[in-house]
């Protein structure tokens, strides 16, 4: 899976699950997800579960940090690095 694909599926998931009714163009690759109040702890866990299933990776609890998950850009980079290391 390339970065673009990961970005697209992550964006679609967040829009559908956590931002119903939001215009897709408002959610950019750099929109702050955790510090911006879009993902609370429960939502973050939902997103992680989704990424694990659909990307075939395992995310350790200590990896659930804003540096990895605070934007769609961060997430795509993080997921790709996980895929590369497995």
């Amino acid at each position: 899976m390339n970065t673009t694909q990961i970005r697209t599926m992550t964006r679609d998931f967040i829009l559908k699950e956590f931002l119903p009714g939001e215009r897709p163009e408002n959610l950019t690759d750099s929109t702050e997800l955790i510090s911006g109040g879009i993902l609370d702890s429960l939502a973050t866990l939902k997103l992680v579960t989704y990424l694990e299933k659909s990307c075939g990776i395992e995310i350790a609890p200590d990896e659930l940090v804003p540096e990895n998950l605070n934007s769609i850009g961060h997430i795509a980079d993080f997921v790709q690095s996980k895929q590369a290391s497995t």
Binding site: E22, G36, G37
Partner: peptide, 18 residues
Amino acid sequence: SLIDLKRFCAHNLPAYMA
């Protein structure tokens, strides 16, 4: 924008009040 509202709350309210 919902993103704008959520960001505003994140900056002005504790997370448990969002």
